[in-house]
Amino acid sequence: MSDLNLHSNPFKSNDTDSFNPKTKSPFSMKEVSQPKTNFVLTEMDRALVIATQEGLPVSERPYHIIGEEIGISEDEVISRLEKMLEHGVIRRIAVIPNHYRIGFKANGMTVWNVKDKDIKRLGRQIGELPYVSHCYQRPRHEPYWSYNLFAMVHGTERAQVEERAKKLKAILGDACLGHEILYSSKILKKTGMRLSKKESVKS
């Protein structure tokens, strides 16, 4: 389990002068940059993302309504959405349930320290389990964080999540060097991906 020292907080700004922007983060963010992507959203694509990211209208011609909002035709809305689907900018267009409200009261973010040489093979197996909704490899931040595989496990109650986490542990076997389950105690903000209306990322 976690070997973090619970009695001192190295992240408290007062004693690590994090209010100085030049201070190096203990998590050295620079080493974890992502690759550049090849699909660039046009101005109109961005407007379309902003107009649809909070959901489509529920009335007979939703794409027509969206088009009127941003000043393009229904046909253009449809063709731009199709293009974004084709390029994978849009993963899917869906009726997205509120999992909590439809009975999945418990979800645990399970985090695993998996030997690097085994993570690809085992990550795929974990990702295929029906009760796992996300399964991602992420960087470690030693000594604060040793877990490199994240799998969101859903269940109707905590006991079921724990039962399922045991199955994940069995699949990982000797390749697993440690794990934890992080339960959410409160949803503080939940929206889909949001592009801000201005270029600025601050509201």
Binding site: E54, I90, P97, N98, M193
Partner: peptide, 10 residues
């Protein structure tokens, strides 16, 4: 019961 109806962006 729904969080929304619409696109899931990558």
């Amino acid at each position: 019961m729904l969080s929304r109806i619409g696109p899931v962006f990558n």
